[in-house]
Amino acid sequence: MALLEVSDLHVSFPTPDGVVRAVRGLSFAVETGKTLGIVGESGSGKSVSTQTIMGLTRGARVSGQALFEGIDLLAMSPKELRSVRGAKVGMIFQDPLSSLHPYYRVGWQIIEMIRNNHHEISKAKARERAVELLRLVGIPQPDRRVDDFPHQFSGGMRQRAMIAMAMSLNPKLLIADEPTTALDVTVQAQVLQVMRRLQEEFGTAIILITHDLGVVAEVADDVVVMYAGSTMEKADRYETFGAPHHPYTEGLLQSLPAYGGERERLRPIPGQPPSLINLPGGCPFHPRCPYVMDRCRAEMPPLFEVGGNPAHTSACWLSRDQVERAALRTKVVGQPLAAPAVP
């Protein structure tokens, strides 16, 4: 059984302008010791889904199931959820400066986290543990830096301190929401290395939410590609990047400046992501899809198994036969795409 199994998650927010349908029928599973990458652009619902699972979205209408170790998180009382957050599921966010309290020392904040969940641990013991954790994430001179304030840390160190805090109770699952987006590439490499090492050491499962396809390709075992609140494609990382099926995944990869390729013209996905209040009928991607067929406008495709691997699924009506698909691809993508169309 997977550590966390989310099925048919729907999240919507009533607003004065209408109901924002942020997540529509999301399903995924995370195994112990594995990393699941969730990629998507802004507004694709990638953060909302995990926040909802942890009970952090107020005023949302939620349906579906999120089984963590066999117990449904969505059915838990706020009090029960509190005992899961931190102790069993650690979270880190994009901006470490606003996640750390500026007024308290870094060590104090980690100690509080530990003592809040384990009242029997003495202050001195908890402090020892905090130093140990800071050392683990590669903070130099942890026995001294433990008494620093967050502003005395650099951006990378703050994010590492956040990881230390999230790991302080040995959680089984770590949810990292854009953990390296605010960091420089060199620091990003350090932080990703720390996360990878902790995973090896403690067997923590990680959900990594990001818009950076490069980061996902590097650290995720499996990848979920989201668009307008729905799953477009699910596969392991080799298939996602090597043999993507869904036109959206393909479009994302094509719009990257090819690393190591020629300086040819980029191929952006034309148009804009849809409004989540007024979603297009059928497949949400159809207005921007180069392969669009009549059926796409009417009916949302379910996740089909594509290719040989049963774990590779794609929500698209296009042929699942790789050869036929490849022929179509050259037919559609072979002709140069029109210049960015702006409505």
Partner: peptide, 27 residues
């Protein structure tokens, strides 16, 4: 070299066999 090697490559086949240089510490 360090800067370029730190850039994540959106190709898992390439990223696993390249030599990444991870710098210690901060600027």
């Amino acid at each position: 070299n360090a800067l370029l090697s730190a850039v994540p490559v959106p190709d898992p086949k390439k990223s696993s066999d390249r030599h990444q240089i991870i710098l210690i510490g901060d600027v």
